[in-house]
Amino acid sequence: PAHPYDRLKTTSTDPVSDIDVTRREAYLSSEEFKEKFGMTKEAFYKLPKWKQNKFKMAVQLF
């Protein structure tokens, strides 16, 4: 299930529990994912792991 970005980011005051914290981005809706990352999930997962992590750090999901 998708969760709002505000509850997934590492600085959230009301974090979602029971998620894989190493894959926070996977819980974003497709729309919100595209808004935050500027690309689709499919394109994101084709990137090298280090680049994925760099993007995730930039949007507080790492």
Rank of each mutant, 00 (worst) to 15 (best):
K49E: 11
Q52Y: 01
I19C: 11
K9C: 15
D6F: 01
P4N: 09
V21L: 04
S29G: 09
S29Q: 02
F33L: 01
F55E: 07
D14P: 05
Y45G: 03
P48G: 00
R23M: 12
D6H: 01
E42T: 09
K9P: 08
E32A: 05
P1I: 13
P48V: 00
A2L: 15
K41P: 07
D18H: 06
K34A: 13
I19Q: 08
K54L: 15
D14W: 11
F62Q: 15
K56Y: 04
V21D: 11
S30C: 14
T11Q: 07
K34G: 12
A2Y: 15
E35G: 07
Y27K: 05
K9M: 13
D20Y: 01
D6T: 00
I19T: 03
A2I: 15
V16Y: 06
L47I: 01
D6R: 00
F44Q: 00
S17I: 13
A43I: 11
L61Y: 08
Q52P: 00
L61Q: 05
E42D: 11
V59H: 10
S12N: 03
F37Y: 03
K56E: 02
P4R: 06
E32C: 11
P15Y: 03
T40F: 03
R24V: 06
Q52N: 00
Q60C: 15
K51R: 11
F55P: 00
T11R: 02
G38P: 02
R7K: 11
V16F: 07
D14A: 07
M57W: 13
A26V: 10
F33G: 00
A58F: 10
L47W: 03
M39F: 03
Y27F: 02
G38K: 10
N53V: 12
F62Y: 15
N53D: 14
K49A: 09
F33Q: 01
Q60V: 04
Q60I: 07
R7Y: 04
P1G: 12
K34H: 13
M57V: 11
K56G: 01
F55S: 03
N53Q: 10
A26F: 11
I19Y: 04
S29P: 03
W50T: 02
D14N: 14
E42C: 11
S17E: 13
P48S: 02
R23S: 09
P48K: 01
K51E: 14
Y27D: 05
N53H: 06
Y5Q: 10
K56P: 02
R23C: 14
H3K: 03
A43L: 12
M39V: 03
K36M: 13
P1F: 11
F62P: 14
A26S: 14
P15W: 03
S29V: 09
M57D: 09
P15M: 05
D18G: 14
S17K: 14
M57G: 02
Q60S: 10
K9Q: 10
W50H: 04
A26K: 11
T40V: 06
Y5T: 05
S30E: 14
M57N: 08
V21I: 13
Y45N: 03
F37I: 02
K34M: 15
L28W: 03
G38I: 02
F44P: 00
V59D: 05
V16R: 05
T11P: 04
T10R: 02
P48R: 00
R7F: 06
T40I: 05
I19A: 05
A43V: 13
P1K: 14
L8H: 09
R24I: 10
F33C: 04
T10I: 13
P15S: 03
F55K: 13
F62E: 15
Y5E: 09
A2P: 14
M39E: 00
K36L: 15
L28G: 02
P1E: 12
M57F: 08
L28F: 08
K9L: 07
H3T: 05
V21M: 07
V16E: 05
T13H: 11
T13V: 12
